[in-house]
Write a protein that binds this DNA or RNA. Structure first.
Lengths: 141, 141
DNA sequence: CCATTACATTAGAGTTAGTCGAACGCTAAC
DNA sequence: GTTAGCGTTCGACTAACTCTAATGTAATGG
């Protein structure tokens, strides 16, 4: 199967701009062109792009992803380095998920707090003492 | 309690550059200055910064956080809009965590795959057919 | 048959959220 | 009294997109 840049963008949930950016930066080396110079993508390119999206979404810089691609093309002798890269990315992603869960707890608290105010329609009693002053403004975040 | 910009940076796990950036962009309106024009932060500023860090880490743009701060300062009548903002952020964060878990599964697969190659020291048999050619290069990502 | 639509291309400018360097000021210590 | 160590401001730089403008080709439609 082969696909246009728009189809790929749709499939991968990224913009055509981003795909061109990755291609221009040498991260999609197997992408071919049709007779009008339009990019054509096959399933292998999709697979590659999927990895790029995965690594980017988990915070790997574009340059580092490029390096990873180079390693893959160099052959099996680079497996140990690739293993280390994926290990690092695994750990980074785990701690990112942990961090997000903590932030989510904070947000949940806010949601519940505001829901409570709306439901009971009573004034906010959690203003920190150093913010409680003559003003009637509700500065509680 | 009051703190220097370095102490705050340490406590919050962000750089002094970032703190100045937020302050310069009006997101820390209560921060005072000492007699040498140095920023001094109190516990309330820390609380605020904590919310900023939380919202940024979960993907809210700086401008939107600024708007949220404005709402807080406007008083209780803005609670419904704040509630909606936090609801949106809650959903966004939940789907971000879901996405990260999916990406993590992909990375886990790579880690296991490479670990297997290293352990058994045998060639990579998962090269997609369209990448398998005369070259000895191992193009398996 | 030629125009309009729809999509592609490129080069390059703009955006966001920092990140950093340079030039400088204050204060405390040797 | 000068050097170290903190802070300041302003402005330049970066990453990773994101978009605009100018241009080209291919299919549809009066």
């Amino acid at each position: 199967m082969s696909y246009t840049i728009h189809e790929v963008a749709q499939k991968m949930g990224i913009s055509t701009y981003t795909i061109r950016y990755y291609h221009d930066h040498g991260m999609l080396p197997f992408v071919k062109r049709d007779e009008n110079n339009n990019r054509i993508f096959d399933d292998n390119d999709l697979e590659w792009l999927n990895i790029i999206v995965c690594l980017r979404a988990t915070g790997m810089p574009v340059e580092r992803i490029h390096h990873y691609l180079d390693l893959v093309q160099e052959g099996e002798c680079t497996v140990p380095e690739r293993y280390e890269m994926m290990k690092t990315q695994q750990e980074r992603t785990l701690s990112e998920i942990t961090a997000l869960n903590k932030h989510l707890a904070t947000i949940n608290f806010k949601v519940d707090h505001y829901a409570d105010i709306i439901a009971n329609h009573k004034p906010d009693n959690f203003v920190p003492s150093n913010l409680r002053n003559a003003s009637t403004a509700d500065r509680t975040a």
